[in-house]
Design a protein around this nucleic acid. Structure first.
Lengths: 215, 215
DNA sequence: GTCTATAGCAGGATAGAC
DNA sequence: GTCTATCCTGCTATAGAC
């Protein structure tokens, strides 16, 4: 448990921080309250005093730390939408970059991505909240961003699938880091992330039919 | 535990089957040996008698059931490669379909996909085996399939990233089923899977630069 | 609010009868 | 090989001293 303990934070915050890290690493079931309190440098009973139970600690962590952080990704992308004059290449590149090298603090990037991916692949009671407050608005916003360029004859569903194909790549290269590193031999440093952003942008632009190949 | 018990199978097999289902559903840590033996309809001590420990049961399940099954996806795709005269559109469609509606028995499709995705996103000691025996050969095979069409000036790394972008979509629409259903309102019936296969194929062909848009 | 002590139970594993 | 009974550890949760 090499996690620094921030001993000036209040007990409650220390618990939330430690819980977040551990839940992200191992998953809810594999983490014990003892482990969390030890990592947080607080006494065992503190979790039940402050949160009532282990499950409610998870929910509190989710609502108070995870959700606010993921919501913070949206404003910059919304700003892009408001401007209204961006070109598709620029839009997609910004989108990809804003998620791949996201604005969360360095020590929380991996943690945040893992918690989201965990919740999406193994829904708990938080699944609905995550979908409706974060994921669906995000997808709709991206779809609205793209839709003017994709032609008016495209169905809603087709627009959605195209949006999801773009998101699929971002998600895959973001969450699948262990696999990608293993296969390419490249660690996720600034260099490689740049390259990934470029690749995903190009592939998606072509996939969306927004960039013509020589014919 | 509505799982039927196949009471004519030997104890060992019954345990492996139940373990597979439960590990896929809940993850290793969240499943107890008691739960497994109850679902299998055998006595509690059977796990330790036949496998030595819960962890070794997981490994046995992985090697004896999961790996052989995922390996069975390869031959049909390899056959495509051997023929050598397939066109890219056909190849990619076959590839997408062979994974999206895979050849595993109906009651094992979801289970198999979940176990793989679990192992890739939360590596245990089996991660290396899965990567080296299944994933890397699979990716290399697909890359070899595509490479003749992508032009000789494409770097190895670029070829790999393009391949992964295609796989990313297949993986996303396959593993992200709860999310996709939630956002589209479509259950994964034959109809929708057809539509997904078509979409992923088209998007990927364009993404790879293999299908020209009107210009 | 903090922490100790412990209740109460579920977990994996095992010994030994059959 | 099968199954019962049980050990013991480690878990969540709580009671109650400070």
């Amino acid at each position: 448990m090499p996690k620094p303990v921030n001993s000036h934070e209040p007990t409650k915050t220390r618990i939330l921080e430690a819980a977040e890290t551990l839940f992200a690493e191992k998953g809810y079931a594999a983490v014990s309250v003892r482990e969390i309190t030890a990592a947080a440098g607080v006494h065992l009973a503190a979790v039940n005093y402050h949160f009532g139970s282990k499950k409610r600690l998870y929910f509190a962590m989710f609502e108070q730390r995870l959700l606010p952080r993921v919501m913070s990704v949206r404003p910059p992308i919304e700003a892009l939408l408001q401007r209204g004059n961006a070109r598709p290449a620029e839009m997609i590149k910004t989108l990809v970059r804003s998620i791949l090298e996201n604005p969360w603090p360095d020590d929380r990037r991996q943690v945040t991505a893992r918690l989201i991916s965990r919740e999406l692949s193994q829904p708990t009671e938080m699944f609905d909240i995550l979908i409706e407050t974060y994921f669906r608005p995000m997808v709709q916003m991206i779809a609205r961003l793209l839709s003017p360029f994709l032609g008016p004859d495209m169905t809603e569903e087709s627009l959605l699938l195209n949006t999801l194909s773009t998101i699929a790549q971002i998600t895959y290269f973001s969450n699948g880091q262990p696999v990608v590193t293993r296969l390419t031999g490249r660690p996720y440093d600034a260099d490689f992330i740049d390259q990934l952003v470029g690749h995903i942008t190009d592939f998606s632009l072509r996939g969306l039919g927004l960039e013509r190949k020589p014919c």
